[in-house]
Amino acid sequence: MSAVQDARPQYLTALAQLDRLFATITPADLDRPTPCEEYTLRQLLNHVIGGIHRFAYMGEGGHAQDVVAAIEDPSDDGWTAVLDRARARVTAAWADDSKLGRPTVAPWGEVPGAVAVGGYVMELGTHCWDIATALDNGFVLDDEVAGTALAVAQLILPPESRVEGVPFGAVRPAAEDADVHTRLAAWLGRKA
């Protein structure tokens, strides 16, 4: 991803999609399994909100490794409120255009801010798919977000990068006519 590209609009769209997804979650859903085999839905929501706060912290000038991508779990019906706070924080943290060219310390190393934004579009777009898949309630995901996430994933996570310590499995095959969400999931090693 070029340092001159600005993926903040796609990130904001992904946040809005996540907000709509959260609105469909009931307390009874929280213990469902997810495509992220190590996480129940509750644990995945915790990771996603923690990741948004970590990304906000990076936009505020902090180093990713200084904070854990996790939060203290809210009450079963409090997830929307914690997402609202995280969304406001990350939006403010990355509002300044100059941050796109600024060196930013992401979990995968120091990169220009624009590259960090792209990486977090991939993260959020992928986890939206994970959540929607776990819920299996017919939620329609945004194709543009998934397309941006897939383009970033193909650029920064080539098949040969799937070594121990990389939190993505081997690339799985996807049908040529598969939708962009299925291709994204397959590229990141999920069972679509």
Rank of each mutant, 00 (worst) to 15 (best):
V121P: 03
A70K: 13
I49E: 04
I49T: 13
I49Q: 00
T40C: 09
A95W: 01
I52L: 15
A175M: 04
P33L: 11
R32H: 10
F22K: 07
T24R: 15
I131N: 09
D66R: 03
A175K: 12
E60Y: 07
A56H: 04
H47L: 04
L18M: 14
L41D: 04
R20K: 12
G101R: 14
T40M: 01
G50V: 11
D73L: 13
L44K: 05
V115E: 11
A95F: 03
H47N: 02
R102S: 14
L100Q: 13
D96C: 02
E144S: 10
E38P: 01
A134I: 05
V117D: 04
P103K: 04
A106L: 11
T80N: 03
I156A: 13
L21T: 00
R32L: 15
D29S: 05
P173K: 05
T26W: 04
A69T: 04
P107T: 08
L124V: 15
A81C: 02
G147A: 15
V90Q: 05
V68D: 15
T126M: 15
L15A: 11
A70C: 07
R190C: 06
M1R: 11
M58Q: 11
A186K: 07
P74D: 06
A114Q: 09
F168G: 09
P27K: 00
T133P: 00
T40P: 01
L135V: 09
V140F: 06
D66I: 07
V48M: 09
P107A: 08
L41E: 07
P33S: 15
V163C: 00
A70D: 14
W79I: 11
D19H: 12
A178E: 02
A175G: 14
A192Q: 04
L124P: 01
A14L: 00
A185P: 03
T80E: 11
V166Q: 02
E110F: 06
N46M: 02
K191M: 12
S161Q: 09
L188I: 08
Q5E: 15
G61N: 03
W94C: 09
Q5K: 14
A106D: 12
H127C: 02
H53Q: 13
E38H: 12
D73C: 07
L30A: 05
L155D: 15
L83S: 03
A88M: 02
R8S: 08
E144Q: 12
V82D: 07
D84R: 13
G101W: 02
V117G: 03
R172N: 13
H127E: 05
E60L: 08
